[in-house]
Nucleic acid binder design. Structure first.
Lengths: 140, 140
DNA sequence: TATTATTTTGAGATAGCTTATCAATTTCAA
DNA sequence: TTGAAATTGATAAGCTATCTCAAAATAATA
C-alpha cells in the first residue's frame, strides 16, 4: 500500500490538501476492499475510531476518486467505491439474485467501444459496462 | 402511438389495472421523448394538467417499465426513463461537456458480452453500457 | 343506466443517500 | 513554536423516490 499512499500524497501536494490521520485510516481500510459503500466503511471503521464521521468517509472516498485511486459506481440507489489503484479498468457482472459482483475485462469490447466513439466524433474518458443477470447458483 | 397504447392496454388487462386519463396523458408525452426524468415530465405536463402529481408520474413511468415500454437508467443521482418501445436495445455515448446523449447499438459488443457471461456462468437479463467523454464540439 | 367493488390519484409525509454548514481541531510551512 | 489554512465531526439540509390514505375515478355487473 506504499504506492497508493504515494499517489495520495502527490495528489494532496498538488492541491494544497493535508494528510490527516483519518485519511490514512480510510485509505488503509479502502485498499483492503474491492467494492465498498460509504455506509459499510463507516460501520467497519467504527471499531477503529468510534468518532469518525460519516461525512468524512464520503469526503475522503470522493477525494480518492479525484486522486484516481477509487471510482464511484451507482448501483441502484447506492454508490459503491471501487478500488482501481492496483489493477486496470474492469467491468462488472452483477447477479440480481444474490447481488454477487464478478469483475472482468475484455480488450475486444474496449476496442469496439473506441471504434463506436470515434465513429461518432467522441473522445472517451471513461465508461461503465454492467451486465445484469443470474449467476449459476441463483438460476436454480 | 397506437401500438404502444395497445401494449399498455394489454399489460393493464393482464394485471387488473385500469386505464386512466393520467396514464394516457403521460404515455403520449413520454412517447415524444427519447429520455426524460420524472421531474422534467412533471414540469412539462404542468401546463396540460396543473394537478397532476409527481408521485403519479413516478408510478406511471415505473408502470411503463413493467409493461416493457420504458427502461430506467441511473445517470449519477438521477433516473432517466428511456423510450424503448419503438426501437431495440441501445447503449449510450454521453458528452460530459454538454450532456448530449447519443444512442448506438453494436451487435459485436453484445455478442462478446454474452460470451463473457457464459464463461462466468451467468445468464444475462439486461445490461448497460455508457461511454463518457467529449463530443467533437466540446473538445475544442 | 345505476350500482358497487376495486384501483388510482393527489398532496404531503416519509425514507434513504449524499452534501452543506460551521465551530472546534488539526496540519504544516515559516 | 506560531499562525494561516485545511479538516473534522455532528447535525442540518437537500434531493430523489416511495409510501400513506382519504377522495375520486374506473370498469364490471345488475
Amino acid at each position: 500500500h506504499v504506492k497508493e499512499m504515494q499517489a495520495l500524497k502527490e495528489h494532496l501536494g498538488k492541491h494544497q490538501l493535508k494528510l490527516t490521520r483519518q485519511r490514512e485510516l480510510i485509505l488503509n481500510a479502502f485498499l483492503r476492499q474491492e467494492h465498498i459503500t460509504a455506509e459499510a466503511m463507516y460501520h467497519q471503521l467504527a471499531k477503529a475510531d468510534p468518532h469518525l464521521g460519516l461525512a468524512t468517509i464520503y469526503r475522503t472516498l470522493n477525494l480518492f476518486c479525484d486522486a484516481g485511486l477509487a471510482q464511484a459506481r451507482h448501483f441502484g440507489s447506492q454508490t459503491k467505491y471501487d478500488n482501481v489503484s492496483h489493477k486496470g479498468h474492469h467491468d462488472h457482472l452483477i447477479c440480481t439474485g444474490c447481488e454477487k459482483i464478478v469483475e472482468f475485462e475484455n480488450e475486444e469490447i474496449e476496442r469496439l467501444q473506441e471504434e463506436v466513439a470515434t465513429r461518432n466524433g467522441f473522445t472517451i474518458k471513461t465508461h461503465r459496462l454492467e451486465l445484469y443477470g443470474l449467476c449459476s447458483r441463483c438460476r436454480h
